[in-house]
Amino acid sequence: MNVLHGKIKQIQTVNELSKIIIDLNGHTFTSLIIDIETFGDIAIGKEIKLLFKEAEVMIGTKESIVSASNAFVSTVKKINQGEILSEVVFDFEGNDIISLITTSSLQRLQIEVDKEFLWFVKANEVTLQKEIK
């Protein structure tokens, strides 16, 4: 699981659906959640954890334009190549972001350590977790 820590910057709610904008060292993340009320006390300025599975992180070339709200260019730090699946580890502001893609895609995109790629995750795949004090 990829874990990042940020601060809530903006909350937009339409009926049961909410879009939460989170600031992470100047980068903006978006998470979609439903039924914000039962999630409880979340407010602008509060610290929050963002969680998303490795398999939900997609990779594109640096110039790609994608619909995913959360798209960032980072350097590949490490690759763990398997027969069917491969893990690509990005260095994002000192945090490891892992993307789990097929080995055939790894080869097709010619992903290599030290090269820059776009990694992205859709807002509906980002789970929020309240910081436990």
Binding site: I34, D35, Q129, I132
Partner: peptide, 9 residues
């Protein structure tokens, strides 16, 4: 232990 602090439905 935090289970209730997750937004997943």
């Amino acid at each position: 232990f935090g289970g209730s602090k997750i937004s997943g439905k």
